[in-house]
């Protein structure tokens, strides 16, 4: 395919075409599989042990009569790179809040970002409303701690020690505080489910918590937990992106052995 005319007429921008095509593939397949899901064709979905463990963690906290902690990371929703992780964490929060309302267990949500605070509050409040237990919703348990990373983590750690957390569910963008929260959570005896797409923090979660969602698993979490066929359908798009990536890598790699760098050039378009 020759795209020079499009570039020379300056309709598309050089260096951005490959990204645009990739984005379009993802967008189209997301839309298509959501539609298919809606029509009742729900794809097979493998088990994600970390997500199934959320129920167990909340159940255990309920039995022990201890509160559940659920946080969505420290990234702002208003962030070009890490915002999506917060949205993913908030989807998990919606699910956790619903279960907590159902079992009548106290839910504490530590918040770092001002922009996210009202959203977290609405999500939890609404979960209690949908379970018909709005009277049990406690505004003061959605805690805005501090905009400073370590002010947040210190507050979070103290809260877990003071309130004797029974479960600690952390899904979202975490940085250095990941290990602080995980260690203190372990010390107070909480069952912990964690997840982040920040590659450099995954090792700490893997070592220090009971279950860890790795990278892309957190983005599928909302759909997985919702059990909504349309949402589950959209997860197929994630896999399609992976197939395309794997195909491009293998093809480019093999072609390069024969001295052909077409794929690599194509990805520079």
């Amino acid at each position: 395919m020759d795209i020079t005319p499009l570039l020379s007429q300056q309709i598309l921008k050089s260096g951005r075409v490959s990204g645009m095509v990739f984005l379009l593939i993802i967008a189209a397949s997301t839309a298509y599989f959501i539609r298919r899901g809606k029509a009742g064709k729900v794809p097979y979905l493998r088990k994600v042990p970390g997500l199934d463990a959320i129920d167990e963690a909340i159940g255990r906290a309920t039995e022990m009569g201890r509160p559940v902690f659920c946080s969505h990371g420290i990234a702002s929703i208003a962030d070009a790179t890490y915002g999506p992780q917060t949205i993913a964490g908030l989807s998990v929060l919606g699910y956790v809040a619903q279960l907590c309302a159902r079992y009548g267990v106290r839910l504490i949500v530590p918040v770092r970002q001002l922009v996210v605070y009202p959203i977290a509050r609405e999500i939890v409040e609404n979960a209690y409303r949908m379970e018909g237990k709005l009277d049990q919703f406690r505004v003061e348990d959605i805690v805005y701690l501090s905009g400073w990373q370590f002010g947040y983590s210190m507050g979070y750690m103290s809260l877990m020690r003071r309130e004797k957390a029974g479960a600690n569910i952390m899904v979202g963008g975490y940085w250095a505080e990941s290990l602080q929260l995980a260690e203190v959570g372990y010390m107070v005896g909480a069952m912990q489910v964690s997840g982040t797409a920040n590659t450099h923090q995954i090792p700490f979660f893997v070592v220090a918590t009971d279950y860890t969602l790795i990278g892309e698993e957190i983005y599928a979490a909302g759909a997985y937990l919702s059990k909504d066929p349309a949402m589950i359908g959209s997860i197929v798009a994630q896999d399609i992106g992976k197939y395309v990536s794997i195909a491009l890598i293998l093809l480019g790699f093999v072609l390069l052995i024969f001295g052909n760098d077409y794929i690599i050039q194509m990805l520079r378009w």
């Binding site: 984005l23 999506p84 990278g215 957190i218 992976k242």
Partner: peptide
């Protein structure tokens, strides 16, 4: 993990745009 995460974030973004 970065590639997978990127794809996940993109799908999530599209879901937001589609109102899901």
């Amino acid at each position: 993990i970065m590639i997978g995460g990127g794809l996940g974030a993109m799908v999530l973004g599209i879901r937001v745009l589609l109102g899901y």
